[in-house]
């Protein structure tokens, strides 16, 4: 048996494959296709303090090897979550991570305080990188002072594991990783989507109602991988790699570059079983390469050997 587990502080994950927020709903959408308890963790669809209807249709455009989305954090808010969704996700048999979003710093604080009381949620992913909301979101994650401040304030009220999800839409993502680490983040996850756009030539209109949106899928993988490698070499906290991971081989690139774990995102839209297939592929690779612990390959390319 190989050890696939990894930890964020004292929070143990049975394996390094998680699902990315906004691509896996609340998990149950995938019940017909896979056993969620096999996964290392699930990052739930982003939650806000108040219900949000999100952006107008069209919110999605297919692009070469990827897609743009401008969903805009449609969700029913934390009250609904506590009442109706939390009871459902309690017994998933894997780590359930909540992704939280706000327009104001006070929103993040209020959410973190509420979620701190939810016994079965061992971690939050602080989303300071959503490109599809008019206020907040990416605004926090593209300004070093704001990123520092929101991380500090949430850290002050949240006692469990704090993962900060970083935006790639910055000049130097390493600066942001360092700042949130300094403020007590337990882990960073990256990357959120890259800001992009698409124009419908037939209709002579922007493809998205919001004109710009977030690019995901294999198109972003090389950029994501570069950023994960840079950040992994700059911080001591575990790095979770995200960005265009479609296959186990893609996931391994991130692990070898220094990510302790990965999140599978857009791939779940194309193959709802992607996450478990990627996990199986990683396990087989470790065995074939003669390793016994996944930690032996994390950051392998960065070692002098």
């Amino acid at each position: 048996m190989v050890n696939l587990g990894f930890s964020i502080g004292d929070l143990h994950f049975k394996n390094p494959v998680l699902t990315a927020s906004g691509t896996f709903g609340y998990g149950s959408e995938f019940d017909d296709f896979l056993d969620v308890s096999k996964l290392g963790g699930i990052v739930l669809k982003g939650t806000t303090l108040e219900p949000r209807e999100g952006n107008l249709y069209p919110r999605m455009a297919e692009t070469p090897s990827g897609m743009l989305n401008a969903v805009g954090l449609q969700n029913k808010g934390i009250d609904y979550f506590e009442k109706f969704i939390y009871p459902r996700v309690l017994n998933y048999g894997t780590n359930i991570i909540m992704n939280i979003n706000g327009s104001y710093i006070e929103d993040y604080i209020a959410l973190a305080e509420r979620i701190n009381k939810l016994e079965r949620i061992p971690a939050i992913e602080l989303n300071i990188s959503c490109p599809n909301v008019k206020m907040g979101g990416m605004a926090f994650g593209t300004n070093l002072t704001s990123a520092r401040e929101v991380t500090r304030e949430v850290r002050a009220v949240y006692s469990k594991k704090l993962i900060v999800k970083l935006s790639p839409n910055v000049t130097n993502i390493v600066d942001f990783a360092r700042v949130v680490e300094e403020e007590g983040a337990d882990s960073v996850s990256l990357i959120n989507t890259l800001l992009g756009m698409s124009v419908d030539v037939t209709n002579m209109r922007p493809a998205l109602s919001t004109i710009t949106g977030g690019l995901s899928g294999p198109a972003v993988k090389p950029v994501a991988l570069r950023m994960v490698w840079q950040v992994a070499n700059a911080v001591r906290i575990p790095v979770i790699g995200i960005g265009g991971i479609m296959s186990f081989s893609d996931a391994l690139e991130f692990l070898l570059a220094g990510a302790s774990a990965v999140q599978v995102g857009t791939a779940s839209f194309i193959d709802p079983q992607s996450s478990v297939k990627i996990l199986e592929g990683i396990e087989n690779y470790i065995i074939k390469k003669g390793f016994s612990d996944i930690k032996e390959i994390v950051g392998y390319i960065n070692r002098s050997n």
Partner: peptide
């Protein structure tokens, strides 16, 4: 027949504006 990514209610891209708010065309 809205534009769709996942088809199973996960991505929330295929929404339609209804009296019950934005609903997914797929589910």
């Amino acid at each position: 027949e809205n534009l769709m990514a996942c088809g199973i209610g996960a991505c929330m891209c295929c929404i339609v504006d209804t009296v019950k708010g934005n609903l997914c065309t797929c589910i």
